[in-house]
Design a protein around this nucleic acid. Structure first.
Lengths: 213, 213
DNA sequence: GTAAGTTTCAAACGATCGTTTATGGAGGAG
DNA sequence: CTCCTCCATAAACGATCGTTTGAAACTTAC
């Protein structure tokens, strides 16, 4: 096997295993044996397990954030005012486009994003915040005029409510779909779930301040 | 120290440490040294680490679920139709009452609930589902007529969207309030956050199916 | 073909993990 | 006092973890 392949085989195996079990629960030995490479290859090519975790996220986030930036620029050049739904659609569309019809890959990515928040990996949160903070701030700057009447305090909390909705759903995507089969008889198509998730977030963002409409 | 105290000292330390770091990241040695008891005490009194995790949740969930059941019975005896807000208030009020003004305890509990979903602890999810499944189903049965027009599929996903919003917010409560100070200058009172969180969830539950109202 | 640099490999390292064992003290019952 | 049960304690067990080592295999360049 060529030398370049080793790195990608490790990243593929780590990505799948991390998303299934979490970071602490996945050993380097499981990763390397799944990837079919030697145990020492991880420390040779990446330096440490922490660096491997960051590399997995970088491979995922780099094209995604680039696509988000591109879509935000498109949105800004349109003459009409930017509304909440179009901003939420930027995110869902970017995930669709970057990872295509490969739902396994997309749900794995979602679970990883959730784990980044939940698991105690301070180094990972720092890395993400430092590397992609500009995009987050640009997005927030566009969201503010899309929600007129909200105070800064309300804007902060409502966006984090919405963020939590998405992250929780994403990180438990497979488990929730399994439960859905038991409870409703339907697994739920990705399109159905994403569109309702977007609707939930948009409705919450608009009306959280006026609970008794 | 009295003999009965050992069990509770372990539960106190485990509860705090699990909520801070997660289950796999917290060793029994850290728990026992924090509790000031011998290492073997965990296996002696609880049998295993898994059983300790379940015991932590049982101590938390038992009084909480009892209080929720009581409030649901009150609600059912009222002549008026049950609406979404009153059902959401049952949950927030129960947490308030059971854990009182002790916000540390309440946020620790919510973080644990979030971890139960996120961390790969199948035994814990099975335990919770088996032990408290009836209450969940009773709650869902009351929620359904409060959201007329929603299909079973929509009901399932919308309630889990709302659940995710609450769990994410509460499990990151302290971190979010710290971020709020930086971004907005206000820490946000508990009442402010809870009322807006409830508003967000209610708005999402009602309008998730009709994103373009 | 030889030398230098890069990657793979088996083996071991020290540390930490959950769990078990053996010992002995504390306290109540007969 | 003796026996028995319950619990705390120190020590060790086997397993697994991330990481390091040193030599072998391979690639590249001259």
């Amino acid at each position: 096997m060529a030398q370049k392949e080793t790195v990608e085989r490790i990243l593929d195996a780590a990505e799948a295993l991390f998303s299934e079990r979490g970071f602490a629960e996945t050993s380097l030995r499981t990763i390397t044996s799944t990837a079919g490479v030697n145990l020492a290859a991880v420390n040779y090519h990446f330096g440490s397990k922490k660096a491997l975790i960051q590399a997995v996220f970088e491979r995922f986030l780099e094209p995604l954030v680039a696509d988000i930036e591109r879509r935000l620029s498109e949105l800004e050049q349109q003459p009409e005012a930017i509304n909440v739904e179009s901003l939420l659609k930027v995110l869902s569309s970017a995930i669709y486009e970057v990872h295509g019809r490969n739902t396994n890959r997309a749900t794995a990515f979602m679970r990883l994003l959730g784990l980044a928040y939940t698991q105690s990996q301070a180094h990972l949160r720092n890395y993400i915040a430092q590397r992609y903070g500009e995009t987050f701030q640009r997005y927030a700057g566009l969201l503010k005029p899309a929600l007129p009447g909200a105070t800064d305090q309300e804007l902060f909390w409502h966006t984090h409510f919405a963020l939590g909705t998405a992250i929780f759903t994403m990180s438990n995507f497979d488990a929730l779909r399994a439960m859905a089969v038991n409870d409703t008889g339907h697994r739920g198509s990705v399109d159905f779930i994403v569109s309702h998730l977007t609707g939930f977030m948009a409705a919450g963002l608009r009306n959280a301040s006026h609970p008794h409409r």
